[in-house]
């Protein structure tokens, strides 16, 4: 049994140590607090939405300009906490997120552009940190697949509507029922045709 224990914050390591004896048999591999919480006590639940950090991230450090505040709020929503399970920098109270937030604030005050901040973070933590992946050969499928689905769907829609428009004019109810009967007969025949000889 081995643990991968990345302790970042003082408090959190204690949490890990405290919680270890409780369920030794189920300790698989844990990579951080998120998984610790989650692994032990949490979610038997397909819970919608949760935050593994039960403490709020509330920052009162001020930025000099309301425009910067708006950019800052937007940016910390777009970057992922590198160490957490699945939280952005705004939600995560891990020390690494705290450091990165203060770094972003510093860069904003120094007049860095969003692209520069993004570059700075990617150089250190990799593309993993971007919740909005950049468009390159590794993400073509990601960005284009939904467009392909919609395009394909639209093509099918047009084809079906065209075919249905050309098909026989809608009949009355009684006629339809006869048609249906006939069709059911055909379906039965077709079933037999389909069966392997």
């Amino acid at each position: 049994m081995s643990f991968v224990m990345g302790c970042a914050p003082r408090r959190k390591c204690q949490v890990i140590e405290q919680r270890l004896p409780l369920a030794p048999a189920r300790a698989g591999r844990f990579t951080g607090l998120g998984r610790m919480l989650v692994g032990f006590a949490l979610l038997g639940v397909f819970a919608i939405v949760s935050l593994p950090s039960p403490a709020a991230v509330i920052e009162t450090e001020a930025l000099s300009d309301p425009a910067l505040v708006a950019r800052y709020r937007h940016l910390i929503d777009e970057y992922r906490c590198p160490k957490c399970q699945n939280q952005n920098l705004a939600e995560s109270d891990s020390p690494i997120s705290k450091d990165l937030r203060s770094e972003i604030r510093r860069m904003l005050e120094e007049g860095a552009s969003d692209a520069e901040i993004s570059e700075f973070l990617v150089a250190r933590y990799g593309e993993f940190i971007l919740y909005r992946p950049a468009f390159h050969s590794g993400t073509y499928v990601l960005w284009l697949a939904p467009l392909a689905f919609v395009a394909l769907g639209a093509l099918i829609l047009v084809a079906v509507v065209k075919r249905r428009r050309r098909s026989q004019a809608p009949g009355l109810q009684a006629e339809e029922r006869e048609q249906l009967q006939a069709l059911l007969g055909r379906a039965a025949q077709a079933d037999q045709l389909d069966k392997p000889q």
Partner: peptide, 11 residues
């Protein structure tokens, strides 16, 4: 640590 991309200790 930040420039190295450290998450926490130990690494």
């Amino acid at each position: 640590g930040l420039d190295l991309g450290v998450f926490g200790a130990p690494e």
